[in-house]
Design a protein around this nucleic acid. Sequence first.
RNA 1: GCGCCUGUAGCUCAGGUGGAUAGAGCAACUGCCUUCUAAGCAGUAGGUCGGGGGUUCGAGUCCCUCCAGGCGUACCA
Length: 565
Amino acid sequence: MSNMIQAAKEQVSELTRTAYEKAAAAGTLPGGLEIAATVEIPKDTRNGDYASSFAMSAAKPMKMAPRAIAQAMLEQLDLTGSYFDKAEIAGPGFLNFALGGKWYGDVLADIEGEGDAYGSIDEGKGEKVMVEFVSANPTGTMTIGNARGGILGDAMASILKKAGYNVWREFYVNDAGNQVEKFALSLEVRYLQLLRGENAAEFPEDGYHGDDIKELAKVFYEKFGDKYLDMEPAQRREDMKKFGLDYNIGKMKADLERYGIRYDQWFLESTLHESGDVDETVQLLVDAGYTYEKDGALWLRNTDFGADKDEVLRRANGFYTYYAVDIAYHRNKFLTRGFDRVIDVWGADHHGHALRFAATMSAPALGLQDKKLDFLIMQLVQLLQDGKEVKVSKRSGRAITLSDLLDEISVDAARFSFNAKPTSHLIFDMDLAVRQDSENPVYYVQYAHARICSLVANLAADGIQVPTAGHVDATLLVTETERELIKSMARLPEEVRLSARDYDPNRINRYLSALAGDFHRFYNACHIKGEEPALLAARLKLADSVRSVIATCLGLLGVSAPIKM
RNA sequence: GCGCCUGUAGCUCAGGUGGAUAGAGCAACUGCCUUCUAAGCAGUAGGUCGGGGGUUCGAGUCCCUCCAGGCGUACCA
């Protein structure tokens, strides 16, 4: 586990610090000052590979011109044995450092040594973290929004694991409560209508109108026939509920598996009711004096904890609200199962809930004040069809489902393009998706991988194998495209760290696109086959390292790395 | 009304702790396949960083304010 970028940065800090101390000792600079300088990577490589702002930060305390300070430091700078073979003063007083061959060789050796684990860091230190995502209602099929949540959550989980966290993927199944009763009722009516005609029973206004319920009723009928026609309604609904939930949950599992998404646990809400966790949690809130009764309902005084409104915990009809259950659920996550951190991936239509729930978390009696609950809020997916926006609604039954999406585009394309930055409004144009194939960025990345595989196979056919890093002279890799490529590969550990820190899995997409671009440029600029053996070996090693890094990153996103295209 | 998110090239977006001439991809235009995959490369064009103030050596980045869009503000989840 190493980070060659970090190593180089630290070396620049050390070199400048030492140079300053020497200059102070020599009397060319005022001594004894603590200078807070930054080391950065200049946008333009003409400004070196690394730049220190030391002289500029020191200008004020030293009461000297930045360039004069830089000059005094440069005179004392000793690059012997370092990663750098050149340093110079530029612009307003930057000290610019240029990397030498040793650093490039070390990066290649690093990638070889770590293999698939390359890019792994220990930022998480084994912290136990749960990523809860999708958690769609089992009352219907999953929408395109669930596709985004699934892809985003799964990629985030993989990245967190790469960053050193102990990751747990969870799907919360709302298999209890109000909406499940409505689901059972809707199913029952469809069943009766199926057997006795449309007018046999009136469909509830607030029921689930989608065709999927009709289909489900048909499936139920095919299995049980008219056996349930004259059954006692309460029992009938109960059995239908169980059947419908099992069926839909199985379908959700299958749909998500098509995307390569698997969970460690499908957590059933009903278990929280059965175990008494919900009763206990609500009682806890009552005992702590956080509640009051109004209009026959039990309310949580959430405004006391900074929320903009109070919440109903138990309805007048006796049912607990999702809110009460959610509190019990999070106590289960943190207190019963001992997660250090929980990340809930939610759509933007839940951000109000996220805010209010954060307030509830601070209520002392719950014992969750110091627990880390984070929300990964993603913007909603806008669906375009015939150039017009399609409003999706589960209730009305108008929705493009998650599995429909895969009928239009490949898993790879879906996983890459739906792993967009969470804060961006994702516009999905159905008409475009069909012909999106050749212009989708995922192919640009996969093509780089396939190209390298083909190249390696070609050379292998000529009896030339990819050399080990120890047999490669990296000082031969001196052109711009070769060095940029190595620098890009060296960035992965840092990209993983930032991606995990910011909960921004799309950072890996951007990284991959950039890396693939660096490779394609290298490939066009540099020949491999037919070059002098030493140069051929170095470039082949370079290309094969890129192949490995691309495959690793595509794996993080759940996208395949094809050998041939 | 109040709250959260967003606003950078025609489109989709990069631009960590403020740094050098604001960058990619797509679309447009011009070139490059008798040697490793042209799903590629090179180049051209495209910008009042939503508007206006402020902070300082320096602001796309920080602060204030206004404007526009999405979402929320249920005894739905």
